[in-house]
Design a protein around this nucleic acid. Structure first.
Lengths: 340, 340
DNA sequence: CTGAAAGCGCTTACAG
DNA sequence: CTGAAAGCGCTTACAG
């Protein structure tokens, strides 16, 4: 069942049918109705590949999970962002194509090649750690790209991320307000851009409040798992004097740290306060519930869709959008004020 | 840059180039090398749409989130399944197309139409609650389909789900082994197929161990949120005698129940034991850590890929595969035996 | 308001 | 081992 058959059944030309499908105005109402009826009756559906071939426009957005997260997109942050993105870009008439990296990366192919192959109209690039160099080819290409948690410099690229500096600022500020003066930090050994921002801003905030930056209170986790946070916290516990409050750069690290502190006989938050970052579901049910910072994943995803849409449909300058994070207070960060 | 240009540059016909691209054996080695070199130098990439148009094969698998979950695929179960599926089907040479339901469902379009439009070679259908009727059109179509947590009857369909009966059996068995005899259940008011299985098997297991099925101990949650579980548990608390252990049909419901029990002054598990189902991340960090049943999402996803592949590439009978779940013991289910 | 025809970039019998 | 040509199902100037 193709456009030719419809044309024959309706006694018109394929050009006419095509115009009706695409809502051209200059078609007789009678003809339009007749053709529409036949399309309805026959259950005719146009073919995407033929349309894409003829128009060079696929109405597809390629989804790239770059770096270490490409093998696993189960992290809640990415899922929430892509979910919001999907909804919004869907409303704008685009579907999503997920490149299955496994095979083509083996064969030395790259994202740009895949994007060309499928003629996607644009790409969203969600970055984890150790992003492959092939992403920069995509960035530099004429294909519009929107990056999440990754810096993009291409002519047709923009990028979005949470204001990661503010994340640390808010935590330090809250710790300070709660009366703590000795603050520790659990960061990552091989820090991504995002993690670098958090660490830098943590140190700057200390300065701002004239708090001591004790090197013994800055420890670095091997990786992102709770067990890595556990190990890092054990290192922290070897300091001569312990910090009074600790900001772990992610919730999972925070959970690991809490476990280490408990095992060392410390009470959280009475002896040592803890805050994390991400507001994963577990924060609400942990013991104690974890104070954390919530990234506005819904806004990030939807903004990404709107900006990519603009990028695909009109000229736009490269730029970076930062989205405001939100502090979520729970029991783990305690307070000294009640004891004063 | 197209196949014609490559052919011209190499001084061969487009047919020859096409054969080289597709690894036909009957090409002179010299010619092959020359053409390959030119493709390399020019950075030529074939076009998916032209290929699909010519072959009627897209190497694309459509992903359908049916029912209430189509607006939100953030539930860990679905993410984990689709993640495993993506890896495996990627290895088999397919990419994933996510239909953006939002727009086309408004317009009264359906999954089958979208699948035809994109000429996907097959579909994976992941079902939540209240699955739309349009899914059955897909099921009945010639397009190979693999269903997750949904019954499929089409000639070219198979489906996979955890052995949900076994989930309940394992929990009841464990409760029994731990010495509990008075067992309660928190189910769902409008139960999906999966939830029906869990409830049915719960009751059957009670019989098997000659335990009492007390109607007061069977309560039903409005929806899937922890707050719904909380409400259901409050109802349970009004029973004349309380059950000694409660199986909540999902972890989130279990968390809500734990909160209700705690608020009522009960200790978990000392006064009332609780088990959930799904093994979401929060189970490890909750207070107490939650005993639960883990679905083998990795196996489900990978099996789905393998079966869909077979369905797409050869004849196969419709059938249902059940995947063994695994009990994960944590503190919340306690035990009476220590007190004996 | 409608249609004939070229073109999009591939594949595939078929002929040699 | 290689090539000429038809065909896949659309769109789009252009002519009328």
């Amino acid at each position: 069942m193709n456009i030719k058959t419809i044309a024959r059944l309706a006694g018109v030309s394929v050009a006419t049918v095509s115009k009706i499908i695409n809502n051209y105005p200059d078609i007789g109402e009678e003809t339009r109705q007749r053709v529409l009826k036949i399309m309805e009756e026959t259950g005719y559906r146009p073919s995407s590949s033929a349309k894409t071939l003829a128009t060079k426009k696929s109405n597809l957005v390629g989804v790239v999970f770059a770096g270490k997260l490409n093998v696993d997109f189960s992290h809640p942050f990415f899922v929430e962002v892509i979910n919001a993105f999907k909804k919004q870009i869907g409303l704008l008439g685009y579907d999503l194509l997920f490149f299955s990296n496994e095979k083509f990366l083996d064969q030395g192919e790259d994202y740009l090649a895949r994007s060309k192959y499928f003629q996607v109209d644009g790409c969203i690039i969600i970055a984890g750690d150790e992003v492959e160099s092939s992403v920069s080819d995509l960035d530099a290409s004429p294909i519009p790209c929107i990056g999440i948690d990754i810096e993009m410099n291409g002519q047709n690229s923009c990028y979005i991320m949470s204001d990661n500096e503010k994340i640390s600022t808010k935590v330090v500020e809250q710790f300070y307000m709660n009366g703590y003066r000795d603050l520790g930090f659990i960061g990552l050994q091989r820090a991504s851009l995002v993690m670098q921002h958090r660490e830098k801003a943590f140190k700057q905030s200390l300065k701002q409040f004239s708090l001591e930056e004790n090197p013994e209170w800055l420890v670095y986790s091997q990786d992102y798992a709770a067990t890595d946070g556990y190990e890092a916290a054990k290192q922290l516990l070897q300091a001569d004097v312990l910090p009074r409050a600790v900001f772990a750069a992610t919730d999972l690290l925070a959970f690991g740290a809490v476990r280490a502190f408990k095992e060392a006989g410390l009470r959280v938050p009475e002896d040592i306060a803890v805050a994390g970052c991400d507001d994963i579901e577990a924060c609400r049910y942990s013991d104690p519930p974890l104070t954390t910072v919530k990234q506005d994943t819904d806004k990030i995803g939807r903004l990404a869709a709107m900006i990519l849409f603009d990028l695909m449909n009109k000229q736009m300058d490269n730029r970076c959008i930062k989205v405001e994070p939100e502090l979520v207070l729970r029991r783990s960060c305690g307070t000294l004020l009640a004891y004063q």
